[in-house]
Design a protein around this nucleic acid. Sequence first.
DNA 1: CCGAGACCTTGACGACTGTCAAGACCTTGT
DNA 2: ACAAGGTCTTGACAGTCGTCAAGGTCTCGG
Lengths: 204, 204
Amino acid sequence: MAARQAPADKYDARRNQLAESALRTLGELGYARTSLREIASNSEFSHGVVHYYFDDKLELIIYCVRYYKARCVTRYDEVIARSTSADGLVQAFAAKLAETIRDEAPMHRLWYDLRTQSMFEDSLRDAVTMIDKTLQDMIWRVVSRYAQLSGRPAARSPQAAYGLLDGLFQQALLGHLTGRPGALDELTAQVRDLMPYLLEPVAA
Amino acid sequence: MAARQAPADKYDARRNQLAESALRTLGELGYARTSLREIASNSEFSHGVVHYYFDDKLELIIYCVRYYKARCVTRYDEVIARSTSADGLVQAFAAKLAETIRDEAPMHRLWYDLRTQSMFEDSLRDAVTMIDKTLQDMIWRVVSRYAQLSGRPAARSPQAAYGLLDGLFQQALLGHLTGRPGALDELTAQVRDLMPYLLEPVAA
DNA sequence: CCGAGACCTTGACGACTGTCAAGACCTTGT
DNA sequence: ACAAGGTCTTGACAGTCGTCAAGGTCTCGG
């Protein structure tokens, strides 16, 4: 029960360690075919240890989702901070989107997997809703900064902006994973085209 | 092996009958937790019959995907045929999108589930890619007709148009399933806003 | 009317899953 | 140095899965 010892950090460190193994495995196999034994075998522990640090398979998964969120949430903040012109922001943002597909494709497909699972499994719904909102906020910070640099107000809701960009992103991810050659370049072009639409048109 | 009898139709009819049971079950439970026994128990047959009509679980699933496609492909063609003005088309199209979420949510979440699974499982990839292309064509017929009625050419690629609309659609589906009240109305508003962006701006 | 083959059920198999209890190992305080 | 308790492994459990073989039931041609 109260498993923590003097260094409570160690307990959390182990949980994070297991979460990382779990995320690696989940990103490789997907939610459906990932077993606790597989997760453990991708770590340096045996399969029984999972129930020492997590009550449940579900608790581990949800912990992973939140742990994963902590990494992504600031992904584009540097782009926001560094940009000094509207065009530069759009360029850097589009490039970063393509880059993260190239470098972290397993993580992204895992996210879409979990989000889709939440359409079936109520127990995932809260965690997914929370992280989805966080991603929407992240996108909205980009759009807000873009509006600011352009001197024009945003014309779309945060939901709409997120939905549109997410649709393009997911399509590019799928294309990239199926080996379609120009998938990433198409994404950057599509994003560059889309961004002005998110703001009010220039005054007539 | 050569299981067909004189009326070869009956063999196909049984396959379709099983496909319908499978789609009902898959739409309810999702790909991960749907077993052949569950599919069979949602039909009037026993669990062994599946292997009489399908070699494999995977063959059944893929057959289902293609069977499902046949229904969706013409979903908006009536909207296209009936519309006589650009605004009327947009209105009817947006309403139809919302309607299909309300009436066929399990089928849609199943589609997203299978599409996501194809990011992990190579064996699903071909079937998913084919139906995704079919859906893109379906959307593109709407956009083309919209361009025609507007007297302006389309400004976005078929991929981009499909990706954008699909993003909004998926977000609305998720919102609808999680019980967010205005999810469907937001979708129709977002689609009405988006459609003009898919065409070239009015001449300056 | 009967036998052949299509159609379907039943029951079993090996493999895999999440879960947990029993105990071994190892660190630490005293 | 010894005991206590945190940490981890091992092995087993009940259940479910896909698959398939054996055999029953039904239908129809001869």
